[in-house]
C-alpha cells in the first residue's frame, strides 16, 4: 500500500499550521508536499518583485518554519517532498533578481528541506529556449543551475527532481523543459554518474503532461525508476487547472479524458514505491469553504483507490 500525500498550499496556514496538518490527517493523508514556492511567488518574480523572504538567515527561516515542523509531527504527517520556488532564472529580470534566486533562494531551500525532514526537492528547469535558440542550450543553463545546488543536496542526502513543465503559443499549451523523456532519462543518469550517487530524479506532473499532449504511459515507461515524486492533478487538456483526477470528460460517454489507467499501468511497470502525491491546491478554493474538508477527503479517497489498484495489478 503506497502512502498518499498532498501539497500544503491552501491547507496549511502560517498563523496556525496545526489546523492544516490536522485537516490533512483527518482526510486520510500520510504525507505532505511542502509548498515552499508560495513564499516567493512566480507571479511576483515575473514582476521583478522580491518580497525579502529569503533575505532571512537560515536560522531565522528555521525559526519561521519550526511551528510547521512541530505541527506536522504532532499530527502524524510526514513531509515527503518540497517545491522550490520558481522560476529560478528569469531571462527578462534584473541581474540582481537572478543573483538572489541563485545565491539566496536556492541554497536556503535545500537547507530548509533538511530542516523540514524531506528527501525530495522539486525544481523547474529554466524556460529560456526562446532566448538561447535550442533546447540543448536551454538544458545547459538548467544544468548549470543544478550544479549550484547538487553538491549541497548530495552532502545532505537529498534528491533534486526536475519536473516536466510547459510553455505556450497563443492560448495553446505546448511542451516546455523536461518534456522529452529520453533526453531527461539520459541527463539524469549522466549527472547521477557524475556525482556517484542518486542526486537527481524526476517529478512526474500528470497535469502538465496532459496539457502538453504527452501520453502518460509512453512517457513514464521511458523514465521508469527515475520517477521519484509525483504531482498528481487533472485538467481539461487545455489549461493547467490542478483539479482532482476524474474531474474532466470530453465525450458523451463521460469517461475521464485523462488516461489514469495508463498512468497506473506505468507506475506499476516502473515499480514506483514513492508517495501518491496530489498537487491540487485549487480544489480547495473552487469548493465552498464548508465543503473543503470533504473535498480533501475525496482527493485522499482517490489516492487510496490508486494505491489499491496498484496493489491489485
Amino acid at each position: 500500500m503506497l502512502e498518499i500525500g498532498v501539497q500544503t498550499h491552501n491547507i496549511v496556514k502560517d498563523e496556525n499550521p496545526e489546523e492544516g496538518f490536522k485537516m490533512m490527517k483527518a482526510a486520510g493523508f500520510d504525507c505532505a508536499d511542502f509548498s515552499l514556492n508560495m513564499y516567493l511567488k512566480n507571479t511576483d518574480l515575473y514582476q521583478d518583485r522580491l518580497n525579502g523572504f529569503f533575505d532571512q538567515s537560515i536560522d531565522e527561516l528555521k525559526e519561521f518554519f519550526k511551528p510547521h515542523v512541530e505541527a506536522a509531527e504532532k499530527c502524524g504527517i510526514r513531509i515527503h517532498q518540497m517545491h522550490m520556488p520558481y522560476p529560478n532564472w528569469i531571462p527578462t529580470a534584473k541581474d540582481s533578481v537572478n543573483e538572489y534566486l541563485i545565491h539566496e533562494m536556492a541554497p536556503k531551500s535545500i537547507q530548509l528541506s533538511e530542516f523540514l525532514g524531506c528527501k525530495y526537492i522539486v525544481v523547474h528547469g529554466l524556460k529560456v529556449k526562446d532566448y538561447y535558440g535550442t533546447e540543448e542550450a536551454e538544458w545547459e543553463a538548467t544544468e548549470n543551475f543544478l550544479h549550484t545546488i547538487l553538491p549541497m543536496a548530495k552532502d545532505m542526502g537529498k534528491v533534486t527532481c526536475i519536473e516536466n513543465i510547459y510553455t505556450s503559443t497563443g492560448g495553446h499549451i505546448k511542451e516546455g523543459p523536461c518534456c522529452n523523456a529520453r533526453k531527461a532519462a539520459e541527463r539524469i543518469d549522466r549527472i547521477n554518474e557524475q556525482y556517484g550517487c542518486e542526486v537527481l530524479g524526476f517529478c512526474l506532473d500528470t497535469g502538465h503532461a496532459n496539457i502538453a499532449g504527452i501520453d502518460l504511459e509512453r512517457f513514464m515507461t521511458i523514465l521508469g525508476k527515475r520517477i521519484k515524486v509525483l504531482h498528481i492533478h487533472d485538467n481539461d487538456g487545455e489549461r493547467d487547472l490542478h483539479q482532482m483526477p476524474f474531474t474532466f470528460t470530453k465525450t458523451r460517454e463521460n469517461k475521464p479524458s485523462t488516461d489514469w489507467d495508463g498512468f497506473l499501468r506505468a507506475l506499476k511497470k516502473s515499480g514506483f514505491d514513492g508517495v501518491l502525491n496530489f498537487e491540487t491546491a485549487p480544489v480547495l478554493t473552487s469548493f465552498p469553504e464548508e465543503l473543503r474538508p470533504e473535498a480533501l477527503h475525496m482527493i485522499a479517497a482517490i489516492g487510496r483507490y490508486f494505491s489499491n489498484r496498484l496493489d491489485e495489478m
Binding site: R182, N210, G213, I214, D215, L216, R218, G237, T249, K250, T251, E253, K255, P256, S257, T258, D259, G262
Partner: peptide, 18 residues
C-alpha cells in the same frame, strides 16, 4: 499520429521521432 483518449488527443504512434 495522435491518440484519442476519451476525446482528448495526446501523442500517439510514431509521435516519438526516435
Amino acid at each position: 499520429q495522435c491518440r484519442d483518449h476519451s476525446g482528448h488527443l495526446v501523442r500517439g504512434i510514431l509521435s516519438d521521432a526516435d
